[in-house]
Design a binder for these strands. Structure first.
Lengths: 225, 225
DNA sequence: CTTGCATTCTAACAAATGTTTGGTTGTGAA
DNA sequence: TTCACAACCAAACATTTGTTAGAATGCAAG
């Protein structure tokens, strides 16, 4: 309710503000880390930056708790200016989710390259999924849990996209020499539920991500030969 | 954005409504199932009903996506009337969470009664936790995931309360004859993460809750003797 | 009937929300 | 210089939000 600490003054006349105070870093250079070749690829670059900022906020606060003004402020814009780059908040969220899922899929597929042992493949996938899920900075984080707070129109699209993504794990689990009385469907669902909510239980400093992946496989490995 | 279908008329003068149309079931009897001894225990009964309604809505839509007016409408009241029973939305949520955690703790403790084998105890706890998590109707459902969308002031209280609750599972896991290279802390965290997000992956009709609990233990059971 | 009390309504408030419109700026091309 | 255009600002809009204040309602006790 009261997250932003106001300057404790000027409570009157909210419509005579003269800019240069709220956006907090407007009108400075875009401060990109690279030396920035000044002639090209600058069009969709700003948009990508905005997508990353929005993804980070959505990841740490959820869809509804993240306002358009929050995203705009972090990007150094005013709220209305965001609509030059995006069509709506829902469309922004869906696009973030789609590109994140696609990026995660290719990252996991790449991490599997060269591995043949089914358990080693599963462990590599778990580790890569943990890295993805715990680096909420970049645009690779799917927000696949927390679908409760998202509007109905958005959720259906996300679920469809998520099911496509989970096909990777469906094949991984299918190749496992699991005992016959273990339901492979539930097995995969439980494993994915763990990984998807990783940022809910992960504590920095204890076990490394590789250790956790190894521990997960130590639990989920059964009837190995 | 447009969840409530308006009556498609009367767009003007929104402050001359004459009641008896919006609350949908105002002014009827409290419709309690019991024959209702009409002299007593009626004070806190209405309040309990409101807590249950709010708990159900919070569970299925999340904290921010559930408005005071949603809760009030489901209870047959107007928004302002809710404040006769509650102090604020945050306090309502915290109270729901506390009573839910307490109820869940006693349910699980009761389910453990008489069982001595550590694996049987763990399975009973898992099954009871599943029942709790999948019956979002009553006031026993903790909302322990989804803490991202909750305000900062509330989250700290919930986390403290949740840690107390998880002590039950801490002892359950401590009694397990697990292999030495399995981190019991992570083991418990992963198991709880599964159970807490159960309503995110459970699909009605496939496996029964008891089957799922058995499957979970088939996965998490190691080095048994 | 009257009084008191519990419960709900009516009506508004300020703030926050997603979004739109029209203007302003800088920059590169002509 | 002029032109065009991409990117942003300024200012508002209509809703929705949590919350409050005061007036009605009904019911039980006196």
């Amino acid at each position: 309710m009261k997250r932003s600490a106001l300057p404790a003054a000027a409570p009157k006349s909210p419509r005579t503000r003269h800019a240069k105070d709220a956006p907090a870093r407007a009108r400075t250079q875009p401060e990109s880390g690279k030396p920035r070749p000044p002639g090209q690829e600058e069009q969709a670059d700003r948009r990508h930056e905005i997508l990353e900022i929005a993804a980070e906020l959505f990841a740490e606060r959820g869809y509804r708790a993240t306002s358009i003004r929050d995203i705009a402020e972090r990007a150094g814009l005013l709220a209305g200016s965001l609509y030059y780059h995006i069509r709506s908040k829902e469309a922004l969220f869906v696009e973030i989710h789609n590109t994140a899922l696609a990026a995660a899929a290719t990252r996991i597929t790449n991490a599997l390259e060269g591995l043949t042992d089914p358990w080693a493949r599963l462990q590599a996938a778990c580790l890569e999924m943990l890295e993805i899920q715990l680096n909420s900075g970049s645009l690779t984080l799917p927000i696949m849990n927390n679908l409760r707070s998202v509007p109905d129109t958005v959720r259906d699209v996300l679920i469809q996209q998520r099911d496509d993504f989970e096909k990777i794990f469906r094949e991984l689990v299918a190749d496992l020499p699991l005992d016959g009385d273990i339901d492979k469907n539930l097995y995969r669902i439980l494993l994915l539920s763990l990984l998807n909510s990783a940022d809910g239980w992960f504590r920095e400093g204890r076990l490394s991500r590789a250790d956790i992946a190894a521990q997960i496989l130590r639990i989920f490995r059964h009837q190995q030969s």
